[in-house]
Design a protein around this nucleic acid. Structure first.
Length: 735
DNA sequence: ACGGATAATACG
DNA sequence: TCGTATTAT
């Protein structure tokens, strides 16, 4: 469970903004809008009364007009995969909800309860649902909502905002109590706990917003509500989406509030009404408590409302659920939530997946490969645009699958997830994904003690596949001062090129462990994957023509098994090998490939220093990837500087200082981790002594990492679990 | 074994 | 570290 730092006196201003049935809005108007947007964008940045814009209303009318037989105001739902029982609903408009249409109904069901419902289909690409238009629309909204403070994209259609600074500024310069007029949108706010029954609720709200005797924290919330109202209006104006929002002192309460009045409304939770809000709130309504934990609370502890939680001591809760979750629960009961709003506008991972339910389960490696290719193409495409648009590189490729195995007992097994370094390039990704799958399959079947033979199916079926890319890090701009600090003269620093060429060059090579296993010639780990069925007849251009929903044909693409030696080598994710492989697909012989791999290993030898890199965390890798050996001196200087400034020099002084090749990459964390792990010195630091400016120069990811060292938020969970709380800790039931 | 595709996060 | 499990929409 998230922990954060509970701060008893939390005067932050946090907002949660939630798009109202986003998919529906998006589906019903986005396409049109994209046309319109081009026209509108010409007007952006202009003042409304700019002469050229005297016809702003013209813009709007264009919008209205182009929105055609707009689905607005009509019962609408978004459905994916139309063919089976009308597909599954993933979003339902409020109009349709009145008829009892619910998410995860079938299209046909929806039609039954609401015959005139409009069903909009999710776009399909490569035989699977394609959510890109929604992602893009989400980004559009995020770019607006992030204008006034730290913004954390919480999902495709939700953000958290930390508006503390902006609210404080407003309170100082322009407090609501001094305002003569208050915008309509603000007055339409809901203030939880305020009597709205009176003849004019609006007047009550207006009064609440402008009362001069309010506490400072309530005034801050009022300012926050102003800001959020403004943002919501901007979203509406610029995207035509409506959204709801909650404004409170922490994320938990803001999230709660944003769902209280929908659609297109906002709710404030003043400090004084927190206890009233929580006392009777069903425990399951709380974020994180909607699942097993919430159930355990109900069944095992008899806790049905958040208020019921108040009777348990923190220690007791920790005893039941561990230190972190226990504390989190205790705080939650009191409306305390120290989670910070992270600065994150972009997702931390990309994934592409599809399910193959029941009779559609994939039964041959060939069909799996086919679908894997589709998924990988989508993933690769998204990685490519992330690279171009955001200058970020993903470092890990992971494959997930769901499988069943008939006849061999009913022992349900999970298909193991597998991951490996991600190499850019669609064909690389495809190859690696397939290798991962085969490794997983082997393991999966191996546990049944089943002999895997070529194409033979022993009753297994794949019901779900997904590939995802994670560990995405931004390429540093290269012009920041810390960079300059590392190498005082700029020309000595190889500027980071953003071309994909460059990036592919930099893509992860063999990891030390792989290298080891390769060279020792034996032991196959995940990275040096099992020999697999060779299927190299198709080249990168090969496209599967694959009618939707008809993937059962499984024409065996003629496969030829290469000698074991070759296949096992080929499957190692070494860039050089693959390069040779691709250039020489049909004629590659075992010898050729063997030579090739030797070459590449040798050529890499100078660059990579055996397995000292093992266990390196981001900073080391980052510095290492950015700095060549010639810059070591500068690097050391900076390391010292950072260490000094953080009072860690004592630690560092015990370490070898020479620039030996193997220690060459030693940088901040190598020192820290190495030292801590090996000697466990008593080390201490004073946060205030650390030069924040230096930290600020680091890439965001690394900043976070450093912050985590300096201000650990969680305690290791050493507490034994109480066996009485069985349900919560029971392993998941296989679905 | 149709509650789909896709995320984030915590834990071991 | 990786792999698993939970949660959410």
């Amino acid at each position: 469970m998230p922990v954060g730092r509970p701060e008893l006196s939390d005067s932050r201003v946090i907002a949660h903004v939630d798009m109202d049935c986003f998919y529906v809005q998006d589906s019903s108007s986005l396409k049109v809008r994209s046309d319109v947007r081009r026209q509108v964008s010409r007007f952006k940045g202009m003042k409304r009364n700019d002469p050229i814009l005297a016809n702003w209303s013209y813009c709007e009318s264009v919008v209205e007009q182009r929105k055609q037989q707009s689905l607005r105001g009509q019962p609408t739902a978004v459905v994916q995969y139309n063919s089976w029982q009308g597909g599954g609903l993933i979003a339902v408009s409020y109009e349709a909800r009145k008829f009892g249409v619910k998410r995860s109904m079938r299209g046909d069901e929806a039609k039954q309860v609401c015959p005139e419902i409009h069903l909009v289909q999710v776009p399909v690409a490569r035989g699977k649902a394609d959510l890109n238009t929604y992602r893009n629309a989400g980004s559009e909204v995020v770019s607006i909502l992030s204008r006034r403070g730290r913004c954390e994209r919480a999902s495709i259609d939700e953000v958290y905002l930390d508006l503390t600074i902006a609210a404080e500024a407003m309170l100082a310069d322009n407090p609501p109590e001094c305002l003569e007029t208050i915008s309509e949108e603000v007055v339409k706010s809901h203030v939880f706990g305020l009597e709205e029954v009176g003849s004019d609720a609006r007047e009550n709200v207006r009064h609440w917003f402008t009362r001069s005797d309010a506490s400072r924290r309530d005034k801050l919330l009022a300012c926050g509500a102003f800001i959020v109202a403004e943002l919501r209006l901007q979203v509406l104006e610029e995207t035509e989406f409506t959204c709801s929002a909650g404004i409170a002192h922490n994320k938990m309460l803001a999230k709660l509030a944003s769902g209280m009045n929908k659609p297109a409304q906002q709710t404030v939770v003043p400090f004084s009404s927190i206890s009233k809000l929580l006392r009777t709130l069903p425990i399951k309504k709380m974020k994180q408590l909607g699942g097993k934990l919430g159930t355990s609370l109900q069944i095992d502890l008899g806790v049905n409302t958040v208020g019921d939680l108040l009777q348990f001591s923190e220690e007791k809760l920790q005893e039941y659920y561990g230190v972190n979750t226990g504390s989190w629960l205790w705080n939650t009961a009191r409306g305390i939530n120290g989670e910070e709003v992270k600065e994150r506008l972009l997702p931390n991972s990309h994934g592409s997946g599809k399910t193959f339910p029941g009779p559609r389960a994939l039964k041959t490696v060939a069909s799996v490969e086919k679908w894997l290719n589709e998924l990988c193409e989508e993933l690769s495409e998204r990685l490519q645009s992330d690279l171009e648009q955001n200058k970020r590189i993903a470092h890990t490729l992971t494959l997930h699958a769901h499988a069943y195995k008939s006849n061999d007992g009913d022992s349900f097994r999970k298909f193991p997830s597998k991951s490996c370094p991600l190499r850019y390039g669609t064909s690389k990704i495809k190859e690696d994904a397939l290798s991962l799958f085969q490794a997983g399959l082997r393991e999966y079947l191996g546990l049944f003690n089943v002999k895997i033979s070529g194409n033979q199916n022993n009753g297994w079926g794949i019901t779900g596949l997904s590939v995802s890319a994670s560990k995405i890090v931004a390429i540093p701009s290269g012009t920041r001062s810390i960079m300059n600090y590392f190498h005082n003269q700029e020309e000595s620093f190889p500027q980071v090129k953003l071309s994909s060429e460059q990036l592919i060059q930099d893509a992860p090579l063999l990891s030390p462990s792989e290298e080891d296993s390769l060279e020792s010639g034996g032991h196959l780990t995940l990275q040096s994957i099992e020999p697999r069925i060779a299927c190299r007849e198709e080249n990168e251009e090969t496209k599967y023509s694959m009618p939707l929903d008809r993937q059962e044909e499984d024409k065996d693409m003629c496969k030829e098994k290469l000698p074991d030696k070759v296949t096992s080598i080929c499957s190692s994710p070494d860039a050089e090998v693959y390069r040779g492989w691709e250039k020489d697909q049909t004629e590659s012989s075992g010898d050729y490939l063997t030579v090739k791999i030797r070459d590449s290993l040798e050529s890499e030898e100078g660059k990579r220093k055996s397995n000292k890199e093992k266990g390196m965390s981001t900073i080391s890798r980052y510095f290492q990837s950015q700095l060549s050996g010639s810059l070591l001196k500068a690097e050391h200087a900076s390391t010292s500087k950072l260490s000094e400034s953080s009072s860690l020099s004592a630690c560092q002084s015990e370490l070898p200082q020479e620039n030996s090749p193997t220690r060459g990459e030693s940088s901040v964390d190598t020192h820290l981790y190495g030292q801590i792990k090996l000697k466990r010195p008593a080390w201490s630091y004073d946060i205030d002594e650390i030069d924040q400016d230096i930290l600020n120069e680091l890439p965001k990811q690394i900043q976070e990492e450093v912050q985590a060292w300096l201000r650990p938020q969680k305690r290791p969970n050493t507490v034994k679990r109480d066996l009485g709380i069985t349900r919560y800790f029971l392993p998941a039931k296989d679905k």
